[in-house]
Amino acid sequence: MNLKESLRNKMSEPPVNRPLILGNNRRKRYESLVDNFYQDVFRYAYWLTRNPAIAEDLVQETFLRAWRSFDSLQSDDAAKAWLFTILRRENARMYERYRPELVDIDDVSIEEDDRNEPDQRQKLSELHKAIMQLEKEYRDPLMLQVGGGFSGKEIAEILDLNNNTVMTRLFRARIKLREIMNPGAVGDESGHEAQEELC
């Protein structure tokens, strides 16, 4: 396994490190799916909605839908992307059109992590806030790539965008994050302004 694969896998490590159960036992396969992905699905729902209570409802609805249409899941390899797609669809159906986009919502559900030093905690807290400040169109692909471990092609399929658009948004997401975290530092780098004109 190369470095890239190793890091990507690390980023999307399932909570219980076991393979999906193959075969026809629907209930066991579903339980295995839940065990492997519910934490990743919740985290993505959180970034999508920026609200833990709504994210929790959304995850429940997502897995209920997944159970009902479980037979349409052809390959266990595609299970995670399939769940994320259901989640996005449910979010659009249930919440997006009814809920105002709340700006500057803060990190309401970050756990205290004693492994981190105070400086590091502060830094992560600021980064959390910065991610929340990103426009949805940038936050979405970035969290799918970094948090979800999806490739550009998979992100394009989940978001129903073309690959170039996804690449542009990933580029801009990191530029914007760096600008939020270190105002003024990014513009001095060579190529930045030129790339901005490309998008």
């Binding site: 690390k10 980023m11 929790e56």
Partner: peptide, 23 residues
């Protein structure tokens, strides 16, 4: 930056009873 984004994401508090509600 990517490592930190991943750390932030992994620190999100998963509701304790969420797994039970997904049976």
């Amino acid at each position: 930056l990517d490592e930190n984004i991943r750390a932030v994401s992994e620190n999100i508090d998963i509701p304790v009873r969420l797994r039970q509600t997904l049976a």
